[in-house]
Design a protein around this nucleic acid. Sequence first.
DNA 1: TCGTTCCCCTAGTATATCTAGGGGAAGCCT
DNA 2: AGGCTTCCCCTAGATATACTAGGGGAACGA
Lengths: 122, 122
Amino acid sequence: MARNKPPELLPGTLDLMILKTLAVGPNHGYGIARRIKQTSGDVLHVEEGSLYPALHRLAKRGCLDSEWRSSESNRRAKYYRLTRKGRTKLKAQTRNWSQLTTAIDKVLSARTAEKAATKGWA
Amino acid sequence: MARNKPPELLPGTLDLMILKTLAVGPNHGYGIARRIKQTSGDVLHVEEGSLYPALHRLAKRGCLDSEWRSSESNRRAKYYRLTRKGRTKLKAQTRNWSQLTTAIDKVLSARTAEKAATKGWA
DNA sequence: TCGTTCCCCTAGTATATCTAGGGGAAGCCT
DNA sequence: AGGCTTCCCCTAGATATACTAGGGGAACGA
């Protein structure tokens, strides 16, 4: 126990994970958070204070539709669903994600200094 | 030409790439940006308005040392070098990066809806 | 009735990045 | 000499995103 500095999540990736999760099927906020946590192997924890604003942002931008329904555990819940625009955004963001990670991994795997010419520092 | 929405870079990864770049050997701001751009295959573009504040942050936190020197093209340049703390941070951030990307990739590769039980939506 | 789980929300704060400027000095070309 | 490009540094303000720290309510089982 006691994770020093818990990873939580990477800024800029929340929208993408929400969209992806909804591509599986409509879901409500609480369920989305639970699913992300679960599919990530309990590594990613989406705070509600990040989640709900993100959902509202995406909805306002026309990427999501919402509808109040009764959840499986018989609770009032707002179900979100991908719109066509949301699906488009998902594709774009997915492509962008793999481009960026590929690029970053290249930077990270660049040859590190063997004896790193620190010639004459100080 | 004309990248639609240029990827630029992922928030939260700049420090890591700076540290990694400096692990190769001391370098100045301009050179760090150029190297990141180059090793990433011309995908990542570090804006100077992001770079310099980041360098100052890292230095203030004791991850970097700096020294004014003359560059290879005979210009006044501030060379940065990893401190012991910086090296430690690099290791931690690298580990964290791979943990997060692994987790996110799991979320992204989760089975997508075949016919996605949209049963009875609206 | 009490505690837990499920479910929603927002205001304020912190932090990172980008935009959009600022400057200066070296070196080449005319 | 003047002008242009490249190299090199910097910051203030706007913007975006995530987190902290609260708020509430309803279902359910003990």
